[in-house]
Computed example of a mutant assay.
Amino acid sequence: MRSYEALPYRPCAGITVLNRAGLVFVGRRAGGPEHVDRTHVWQMPQGGIDDGEDAYQAALRELYEETNIQSVEKLGEIPDWLTYDLPPEIAGEAWGGKYRGQKQKWFALRFVGEDREINITTPANGHHPPEFIDWRWVKMSELPDLVVPFKRAAYERIVAEFQHLV
């Protein structure tokens, strides 16, 4: 097995979905090795970018697969990639131990549909099992305190980049 430091980052798209009131969608994760405590279980939709896939198209696909949301308008994106490292003690459990963390391309989208469009229990495109067991709208300023500590710096940057869109 490669050393932790030699592992690459998994390419990923992240989505900040804002509703008309300027609140951000967060989902309560169903579980997985990234959950290092019971307090920081919320996150925004995100997921892997397939080989040859455009990052924005991956973001739309992941959003649909995790939430069934399709009624969106693009508001912006962070021009560079944000990274986070998994704690070394769980890196071997996540993604088959192939990555040390993720490099993420983040997009901001305005949700222009109705809340009834959101369906986390029956994922689209046969995406099973569901990523989230609950969801809610929160103030953007709350985001860094909701996620696992090793993602906090990335979420602080997302808030700084997208706060003006609220």
Rank of each mutant, 00 (worst) to 15 (best):
F162K: 09
D85G: 05
M44V: 08
Q57F: 07
V26K: 03
K151D: 05
I78Y: 07
G27N: 07
L109E: 04
V138A: 11
R110Q: 04
S3M: 08
F25P: 02
S71N: 04
A13I: 02
T67D: 06
A59F: 05
E161M: 11
Y64I: 11
A91C: 02
G31P: 13
H164I: 05
K74Q: 01
E73W: 01
M140T: 00
H35S: 13
N125L: 13
V147L: 11
I133S: 15
R116Q: 10
P87T: 13
Y64N: 10
E73R: 15
S3T: 15
R20W: 00
P129D: 15
V166T: 11
K98I: 08
Q57Y: 00
E77W: 00
Q46V: 04
N68Q: 10
I69V: 12
C12V: 01
L165N: 01
N19V: 10
L7F: 06
D50V: 10
G92N: 12
V147K: 02
V36R: 12
E73P: 04
A21N: 08
D145K: 15
K103I: 09
T121Q: 12
R116P: 03
G113H: 04
R152M: 08
W42C: 10
F111K: 03
A94N: 14
E66K: 07
V147A: 06
Y64T: 01
A124Y: 01
I133T: 15
F107Q: 02
E117M: 03
G92Q: 12
W81V: 09
L63W: 02
W42Y: 15
V36L: 15
W135H: 11
P45I: 12
A59M: 01
G31H: 14
Q102R: 06
H128N: 14
W42E: 03
Q104H: 04
F111P: 03
A59S: 09
F132P: 02
F150L: 10
V166C: 13
A13C: 06
E114P: 06
E53C: 00
C12W: 04
F25A: 10
E34F: 15
E34P: 05
R100P: 03
R38K: 15
R20M: 01
Q163G: 11
V72S: 02
K151S: 05
A13D: 00
L82A: 01
Q163E: 14
A160C: 03
H40T: 15
E89S: 13
V36I: 15
K151M: 06
E53R: 00
K98W: 09
R29F: 10
W106T: 06
G32W: 14
R2E: 12
I120E: 08
Y9A: 07
K105W: 06
P79I: 01
Y4W: 06
I118R: 05
F162S: 10
A154F: 03
R2N: 00
L18K: 00
Q163W: 10
P123Q: 10
A153I: 02
R10L: 15
S3F: 07
L23T: 08
